[in-house]
Amino acid sequence: MSHSLTSESPPPLVQSPSQEFWTGARDIIPLVVGAIPFGIIFGTLATSNGLSPGATLAMSAFVFAGSSQFIAAGMIATQTGWLLIVLTTFVVNLRHLLYSVSLVPYIKALPQQWKVPLAFWLTDEAFAVVIRRYESKDKSHFKHWYYLGAALTMYLNWQLCTLLGITLGQMIPDATSWGLDFAMSVTFIGMVIPYLKNKPMVISVVVASIVAIFAASLPNKLGLMLAALLGIGAGVISEHLLSTTTPRGIHHE
């Protein structure tokens, strides 16, 4: 009987570094699955656009930024100079400023030898799972190990998929048609819904979604940046408006 009771009770708090590490590695799996087709396509596309296999692998290993790598592969095909590609990469990656500034309160006490690799491995996917871990209420001192586990899993998968694309890409049927990338969409949906506890949050998400759709044709992920900034603005402004009209309206979070 006591066994069935323990299995009914909530899971124990994750505490030790290795438990945190492996939980992070596990929690990012749906997003890793969603990235598989893109890694394979990148390996295939970059080499067929004229980047050497070695440089293609090196780009995944040292740059590790999916969107930028895709845009770079496209620019290589059109004979664009390296400097312009580098400047474009900078613009495409600006959204990481939003992620890293959001993580500042949680990582500021870490030593440099942690901040450097954690920054290097910061991606959309890692941010999504890691901020969730940091925002959860328990007082674990090892949440950076969760970050490391999640980020490393994403990184290793990206290297393997790039290699797969380079070596077997021509034999693999069109990876865009698999639908695996949809795993990212449903994961993000499941992460967003719990935030929608008050009107400002709902307004900010609705504004961001609408702007993202209509600004999707902007180059270099600028539509995403615009949508994020306008969504944040809409949330903050509606917070102020709602708190002046209904003074107790937003304090029930």
Binding site: L98, F188, M191, V192, A208, I213, A216, A228, V236
Partner: peptide
Amino acid sequence: LNALRYVPPVVLSAIVAPEVLL
């Protein structure tokens, strides 16, 4: 810090909405 509370839901929905609706 208050504004940054909006970053995760806003960014994730801005990534998903075009994926789903376009």
